[in-house]
Amino acid sequence: MALIRITSPHVHKPTSTAGIMRLVILATLPGILAMTFFFGWGTLINIIWASALAVTFEALCIKARHRPLSFYLKDNSAILTAVLIALALPPFAPWWLTAIAVFVAIVIAKQLYGGIGQNPFNPAMVAYALVLISFPVEMTRWTAPFMLYGEGWNILAFTDTLSLIFGSWAEHADAFTSATPLDEMRHRGGLTTEEAWRASDVLANVGAWHAVSAAYAMGGVLLLYKKIFSWHTPAAFLLSLGGIATFFYIISPDTYADPFFHLTVGGTMLGAFFIATDPVSSATSNKGKIWFGIGIGCLIYIIRTWGNYPDAVAFSILLMNLAAPFIDQYTQPRAYGHKAPKRGMKGKA
């Protein structure tokens, strides 16, 4: 009997970081299915391509940093980042675009900052923002839902999609590209919202976007149920976005899109349930999470409505990531037995 000295506690809840990551990846499945259904094989191909790249980059970085390889690869975090990037990019993003995005996410936004748990910004969103800024043309080339379906609901073949992504994009590009509903709403010229709805094909097909959003929300609710994250961030995020949208919609329905539109198009749902809830880069305490969510919601509306870019989930989340440590400082919970919570930071910063 070799008894050893081990400090308490002696039992442990059977949870693991890798398990959590796996569950989040699984929760994106409804969204992936919906995207594939409406936009063709591109999303799936992108996910596989991005995951392969992400694991490779991660492995290289870990090797370069002299750390145990399998230990870190096993935590599934690189794959999750890759999946989120692939979901955020247009379904027919050229291969190099995905590669650059994954490189930026894994190498620059994550490993250079110290690897898992150390990144102040959400890697997927850093990558998305970077490619969005650098390659505006490619990034706005979305397809319209169902556009790839030929006669009798024959979707564009898998191999064709492959060649579209890995071959030369330019030849086919114009055949498939289309603006997103947010683009349409933003660049509608002098039309009122009412007129825009009637005039635009894209907006007519907005139902597909709603469906995709609903699929993301489904996955999100599953995670909520599994207590992977708390309700605070998504709720604050969606409520504040909806609230502001409602406010402006009531003031001027002609100028501003309705709140339902804001909540269900673009990356809102993906951002609310999968990106803003990334624990590493978000605020910590429950109160902090609420402020974090509210900040994102407000920024999204502001940028979408008055900014240069049609969608703003990535920028808003990055900006709030930046503010998260500050929020943490000022939203410390009141500890047991204390009259008031402590604020700010004592000692040297």
């Binding site: 970081t17 910590t284 500890a335």
Partner: peptide, 29 residues
């Protein structure tokens, strides 16, 4: 019933500890 603890990984700031803390502290901080 009491297996040896696996090696500790990096903190991902998941906040589960904070939800579990009976003294309402911020364990990860």
């Amino acid at each position: 019933e009491m297996p040896p603890a696996p090696p500790s990984q990096a903190c991902i700031r998941c906040g589960l500890c904070e939800q579990a803390c009976p003294a309402e502290l911020l364990p990860q901080q």
